[in-house]
Design a protein around this nucleic acid. Structure first.
Lengths: 344, 344
DNA sequence: TTGAAAGCGCTAACAG
DNA sequence: CTGTTAGCGCTTTCAA
């Protein structure tokens, strides 16, 4: 704020005491008399004093701000995460500085650079689809920047992480499809770069194996753009549905892929679940009122954001060196609705 | 970042020159020789120098950060707005510091306080449902803090504002219901405190008047909690649908109210649009694949965020005093789908 | 073209 | 309990 502002000097002058006394009074130091403290606080209110947090930060070497990098905010899951982050950060007196990588690894790097040079006390990261090299993050982490990863994590950096139980969600979801009588279950998923892709793929495969269904690699389709590109999914669906060995169900691995696939099945005039069943990861709020209602695997976005923020602030405020980093896995919830019921 | 960091002093020492020369070189000042400039830039890269933006801000009196207060982020419309804000801010080198009021006027005030004391250069605001007194904002604005309001604006403060064309959207939407043959059109809306409530109500009323339909105040229902409370809407619906003079259509005034009403109509076993038609303001992505597909009035969230951020940064970077503040109105889009078609 | 020095607003070590 | 002083990292006069 470059507009007129009251400093501790003004208060000092007003009261005819030193600036340090004012500082002490305002910071509720023990080495100040009750009388002066009251006087100062009174005067501060009167002059409408606002502490300049940049000066304080500069002095103290911390900023009481945490940086966040998400792939995108216009997405129910990530906006829930951000909601959670904000609520914890706020309650602990931290600001949230917020950026989007838009699934670009270049933008991601730029954002991290920008954030760290703007003096954040710690970083909350969910990697972009594109990212394969986390060397720069590793360096920052080695230098001492507290980092907590959530959802889209990476193995190379040893720090706290929070994920949903992607493996279990995929296992349970796929198993439900099998229990409903489906045998030829296709899997449409994101880029193989991303941690969650592998976890979900493994759950899917195990469900098939447990039920003595051979994994058909033709039925596993990767979206390079993480489902952002509707055309890409449309091509995949056409390949699956008009090709040989047509699947009778689809297990989709992300919010965007799930709803886009659902919408495309409508567009292509397939009847769900008669012609093809669908069940997928999604936090869409309207699952119950879709046509038909959509079976989903729900990820606890709000809780993830809260947990990640708590862990990060924990790291920031711990003086001693942390050795035992933790990966917290939050349960996913499988909601069976009509889109994955037995046909007929 | 309280971990080891390189300062201009380190560079100065390394090169045997003064800190001011380093500063000049780094800032591409005209009063520096090409030779030293190169040397400094080279050395900065080598030492991996990161400028401390807090020190710079403290000195220069600006922070290159803008504060944002939204009612909530876990909402498609507001997350689109934030997406837009972030994209513009980012491209102009500003950080976005982000807070939620959670529809509480107390939290809103707290957030603004926190933001301004954290030295933001400007503020982007959408008021909470609860807010009636904007005196504190008025004071800040009078003191020189650039503020731009979006969506939920207020009349009392004379500054730039960005809104959707709520009046026109409501007028067109209601008219469509009338054209489809509905005559008894109820209106469920938010708190009357909020600017958009009035604008939408006016559009609704004009549509009725133009078609010689008397406005029935019994058919206009206000949600005090802006639709956050499902029970509140349920009570309203029961009153409307099981009372006298049952409406044949509902025009809903916000995202949350629209989808919740839709979902409750399902739950109450009403057939849409046979028993009751519905059309409302909503940015829900799944409108096409709902059961039945949902007629919506769409607000350009992304554009609103971009425009608001542009205007704010304009205000921040303009030296001269602004007198002519502008209210930008962005068009809404009415999408007619099955939920508001003629019954049978 | 460069360096010395002051100062942004605040905190904290030191001295009284 | 209080004041003096130094300094966080940076920019910017002022002098040279």
């Amino acid at each position: 704020m470059n507009f007129e502002s009251v400093t501790i000097k003004d208060i000092a002058k007003e009261l005819g005491i030193s600036a340090s006394s004012v500082s002490r009074a305002l910071n509720d130091s023990y080495e100040i008399s009750e009388r002066t403290k009251k006087l100062v606080i009174e005067c501060a209110r009167k002059l409408n004093y606002q502490p300049n947090s940049m000066a304080r930060s500069l002095k103290q070497g911390n900023s009481k701000a945490i940086g966040v990098v998400v792939p995108l905010v216009d997405n129910r899951f990530f906006s829930q995460v951000i909601d959670g982050i904000e609520s914890i950060a706020h309650s602990k007196g931290y600001n949230v500085i917020f950026t989007q990588s838009r699934e670009s690894s270049k933008l991601e790097m730029f954002n991290v650079d920008h954030l760290t040079s703007h003096s954040i006390d710690g970083l909350l990261m969910s990697l972009s689809t594109e990212t394969t090299d986390v060397g720069y993050l590793k360096k920052l982490h080695a230098k001492g920047l507290p980092i907590v990863f959530f959802d889209r994590i990476c193995d190379e950096i040893n720090t706290h992480k929070v994920i949903a139980d992607n493996f279990m969600g995929a296992l349970e979801g796929t198993t439900q499809l099998i229990n409903a009588g489906y045998r030829k279950i296709a899997h449409i998923t994101g880029s193989i770069n991303v941690s969650i892709t592998k976890e979900r793929l493994n759950g899917y495969k195990l469900a098939l194996e447990r039920n003595n269904i051979a994994v058909n690699e033709q039925h596993i389709k990767y979206c390079l753009y993480g489902g952002k590109d509707r055309k890409e999914i449309e091509n995949i669906l056409i390949e699956l549905l008009y090709g040989e060995n047509r699947p009778d169900a689809i297990f989709t691995a992300s919010d965007m892929i799930t709803t886009t696939t659902f919408s495309l099945l409508h567009q292509l005039k397939f009847s769900i679940p008669k012609d093809i069943a669908i069940l997928g990861f999604s936090n869409v709020q309207e699952a119950d009122i879709l046509n038909p209602s959509l079976s989903t695997i729900y990820q606890p976005g709000l809780e993830m954001g809260k947990k990640a923020a708590e862990m990060l602030i924990g790291l920031i405020e711990t003086k001693r060196h942390i050795i035992n980093f933790e990966t917290v896995t939050l349960p996913t919830q499988v909601h069976i609705r009509n889109s994955s019921l037995r046909a007929e």
